[in-house]
């Protein structure tokens, strides 16, 4: 099954990735080839087979709800490109 430019643009928007026209072209062709190869998966009879999301026999791991020291605010904010008064700063989500 092929993927066209329009689908690539749609997926890129879902993934919040700005792509160049050349990238859109390349991904349309590469993703088509890869997904074509992956079609073999459809031939497997998985009727009655449960999906595996994780492989360990652990379930609902809980911890005590206790207050413990966290990382210092300055350390965590030190990597933020824009900050002000102990907050991370971003442009508005809407003008």
């Amino acid at each position: 099954m092929g993927i066209d430019r329009r689908q690539v643009e749609h997926i890129a928007e879902l993934a919040k990735l700005e792509l160049t026209p050349e990238e859109i072209e390349i991904f349309a062709s590469q993703l088509s080839v890869i997904l074509e190869h992956f079609r073999s998966l459809q031939e497997v009879d998985t009727g009655g087979i449960p999906p595996t999301a994780q492989v360990i026999p652990l379930r609902n791991v809980l911890r005590q709800d206790e207050v413990v020291p966290s990382l210092p605010t300055e350390d965590v904010l030190s990597n933020a490109p824009h900050k002000e008064k102990g907050y991370i700063k971003t442009p508005p989500l809407r003008e």
């Binding site: 998966l41 497997v44 998985t46 087979i49 999906p51 595996t52 999301a53």
Partner: peptide, 11 residues
């Protein structure tokens, strides 16, 4: 795709 892959993962 995703769900089928998870089922084949079981196999």
């Amino acid at each position: 795709y995703y769900l089928q892959a998870q089922k084949v993962r079981t196999l």
